[in-house]
Structure formats: structure tokens, C-alpha cells
Computed example of a mutant assay.
Amino acid sequence: MRKRATVICRRGNRILLVARRTKWALPGGMLKRGEHLSDAALRELKEETRLSGKSAKFLFHHRGRQKHHHVFFCDVAKSAKPRASNEISRCRWVHVSDVSRLATSSPTKVIVKALGGAHRGKR
């Protein structure tokens, strides 16, 4: 099973999502050879949204059908504006309660649901 660093960026009750083609997903991607998971999380966040995470804090694992997601929380500057780059077409802040109604990957829905109140109220 392939390892994937998956990133949660949160501002109040909103999280950052990225779109590849028609589906929304959490930022993230596969590890490069010899790369640490937390480094991969920060690299993927920067590659996809041009945001620099201050750190990557491990939250939990999620085993999908094809990938093993290592989920990290990345804190970004409040004033930072995400801009789509690399392999994504769009990115935006989405209210957590709206994620279940969006066209997303199934791991995204499960991971966001599992978050629950893990970082509720933190900015």
C-alpha cells in the first residue's frame, strides 16, 4: 500500500481543499524516496497551494483502498492566500459542514469526519 502525506489546514470551522479535475480533496501526495512524512506534507502543501506551513503535526492514519494516508495538521499564516499551482486546478477554504455535500474523494470525507473536534476553534 502506498504512503500518502495528507494535510489539514484549518481556519476556525473552515478547511483548505484542492481540486484535481472535478473532485475536491485535501492537499497532499506521495512521498519521495527517503523523504520523511512530515516533510512530504509541507512540500505537497507548498507545491499545490503555494502556502508555507509553519510545521506539520501528525494527527492520525487512515487506510484507504489504495493508499495509506498519514494525516498532518499544518498551521499557515492567517494572512496567507492559497493559490492553485502544480497539478491542481483550484483551492479554497470550505466550511467543515459543507464537505459532505461536495464532490470529493471518499478518503477526504472520511478524514474530515474523523477530525471531529480535533482542532475545533484553533486558528
Results as ranks from 00 to 15, higher is better:
R14C: 10
A56E: 06
R4Y: 13
A114F: 00
T6N: 03
C9H: 02
S89A: 10
D98P: 00
L115R: 04
F58R: 12
G117L: 05
L31N: 04
S79N: 06
D39R: 11
R65K: 14
F58E: 11
L115H: 00
H69M: 08
R4E: 13
K78M: 06
Q66L: 14
K78D: 10
R11F: 15
R33Q: 11
P27Q: 10
V71W: 02
T49P: 11
R123C: 09
H36V: 10
S52T: 11
P82M: 09
R14D: 11
D39H: 09
T104S: 04
G116H: 02
V76C: 13
H36N: 04
V112A: 06
E87K: 15
Q66P: 00
M1R: 10
L102V: 02
W24I: 07
V110G: 00
P82T: 09
H62A: 08
V7T: 08
G28Y: 06
D98M: 01
L16V: 04
A25T: 11
G64C: 02
L42E: 04
M30E: 14
A40Q: 04
A40C: 14
F72H: 07
K54C: 01
S106T: 09
S79E: 15
H62K: 12
I15G: 04
P27C: 09
W93L: 13
V18F: 03
A103Q: 13
R50L: 13
R83I: 12
E47V: 01
A25E: 11
E87V: 11
G34V: 03
H119Y: 07
A41S: 07
K23H: 07
V112T: 05
E47K: 12
S38I: 00
R11S: 12
A40K: 04
R50M: 07
T6Q: 03
H68C: 10
R83C: 06
K113L: 05
M1P: 01
G121R: 01
A5H: 01
L115V: 09
V71Y: 08
P107S: 06
R50K: 08
L102H: 01
C9A: 12
R101S: 15
H68S: 12
K78S: 14
A103E: 13
K67P: 00
F58L: 10
W93P: 02
F73V: 11
R63P: 00
E48W: 01
V96I: 15
H119S: 00
H70Q: 14
V7L: 07
Q66E: 09
T49Y: 08
